[in-house]
């Protein structure tokens, strides 16, 4: 992106470099949310449905992880994926995969914590009915996840918002490489450091617009679903 054109122009002309940045941001954040959902939803359900010593403590820890600093997660993943680190042989540092891994770690606790609350509430309601219908543990988890799906969508959205907005983790593990690992947020950080504040603000507006659109779509899906399923 050249600094001498305005952000508005870049958007209106669908500047290829800008579109690539937007595309990569969406791909990385949505992939991370998908992976985090696969980890977080069953984990949340497990904590909601089981009773074990130290359960309260694990809920406190999980809720505390909501505030994980992205840059710390980025650093941990960096050290893990570094050639000198334990997973160095994968050779994926400074690639979009590394960014997905970092954001997955960032987002999974959010999804798990919100899912735990949602599923536990529903479980209190369903427990007797499912026991009376002789539904086993796997069936219970599946039933609760399915019936809470519209509430869980909110958890996924919260995760997406976090992933799309963070810069600390992706810049450390992705490296902000032009055309390869540059996302909306790292581009904003870069333009800010170059002193091109109008372009940075313009990119920020685009980012906000995308998050609003994604939320609106999810909200619409949720309302439609609730009308059908109650």
């Amino acid at each position: 992106m050249r600094g001498d054109v305005s952000a508005l122009q870049l958007v209106l002309t669908a500047d290829p470099a800008l579109m690539e940045i937007v595309r990569l941001s969406l791909v990385v954040s949505l992939s991370a949310v998908a992976c985090a959902a696969v980890i977080g939803l069953p984990l949340g359900a497990l904590i909601a449905l089981t009773r074990y010593p130290g359960r309260e403590a694990s809920i406190v820890v999980l809720n505390a992880l909501l505030g994980l600093p992205p840059v710390v997660v980025g650093l941990l993943v960096y050290l893990l994926l570094s050639r000198s680190g334990p997973l160095g042989t994968w050779g994926i540092l400074f690639t979009p995969q590394a960014m997905v891994i970092a954001q997955t770690i960032l987002v999974a606790p959010i999804i798990a914590a919100l899912a735990r609350q949602t599923i536990e509430d529903l479980w209190l309601e369903y427990r007797d009915e499912l026991a009376a219908m002789n539904v086993g543990p796997a069936g219970r988890v599946a039933t609760l996840l399915w019936d809470a799906r519209f509430s869980l969508l909110t958890a996924l959205l919260a995760g997406f918002g976090r992933a799309a907005a963070e810069v600390g983790a992706v810049i450390v593990v992705g490296g902000n490489i032009d055309g390869f690992t540059r996302t909306m947020t790292t581009a904003i950080a870069l333009e800010t450091s170059k002193g091109d504040l109008p372009l940075a603000i313009g990119l920020g507006m685009v980012l906000i617009a995308i998050v609003v659109v994604v939320n609106a779509l999810a909200w619409g899906a949720r309302r439609a679903g609730e009308r059908l399923a109650g």
Binding site: S31, C35, A37, V38, P96
Partner: peptide, 19 residues
Amino acid sequence: ARRTALAFAAAFLAGVSLA
């Protein structure tokens, strides 16, 4: 149960393959 499991597998594959 099966539908949820399928949805999970699909989501995971999507995440991995996109990356």
